[in-house]
Simulated scan of single mutants.
Amino acid sequence: MKDDDFKELMPNPQRGLYGSDHVIAGIPIPKTQRVKLFDEDTWEEFTEEWASSIKSSYYRVRRFAGAGDQGLDVVGFVTSTQFSDGWDNYQCKFYDHPLTPSDVWVEFGKVIYFSFRGGFPSPRKYYFVAPRQVGTKLGKLLSDAPSLKEALKENWGKYCENGITSTDKVKLEGELLKYLEGFDFTIFDTVSLVQMIEQHATTPYHAVRFGGGLGLRPQPEIPPEDTVSLDHRYVRQLLVVYAQSIGENQKIPDLSLLDKDQRIRNNFQRQRESFYHAESLRSFSRDTVPPGVFEALQNDIYDGVVDVCESQHESGMDKLSSTLSQAATVAVNASPLMSVTRVRDKQGICHQLVNDEKLNWSEDDG
Rank of each mutant, 00 (worst) to 15 (best):
N333H: 15
T288V: 06
V228E: 09
G135I: 07
V343Q: 08
L324Q: 07
G71I: 05
S285T: 02
Y95F: 14
L216Q: 14
T227V: 15
Q237A: 11
T186R: 14
S147M: 09
E314N: 15
I54P: 08
V191S: 12
L180E: 09
I301Q: 00
L258R: 01
S315I: 05
E161V: 03
K137G: 11
S256D: 12
E225C: 12
K31H: 15
F185T: 01
T42S: 15
F114D: 10
R263S: 12
V354K: 02
I222A: 09
T190G: 08
L9S: 13
Q347I: 00
G157K: 15
I29A: 11
A243Q: 01
V305I: 04
F38S: 03
Q70M: 14
D39E: 10
W50D: 07
P290S: 07
T136A: 13
V134N: 10
G86K: 02
N249T: 13
L138V: 04
S325V: 05
L353F: 02
T190E: 13
K2R: 12
F294Y: 03
Q250A: 15
G16W: 02
R236G: 01
K178F: 09
S315R: 04
V61L: 07
I264W: 04
F183R: 06
W361K: 07
N267A: 13
T202Q: 05
E310D: 14
Y159V: 05
I54C: 08
A331D: 15
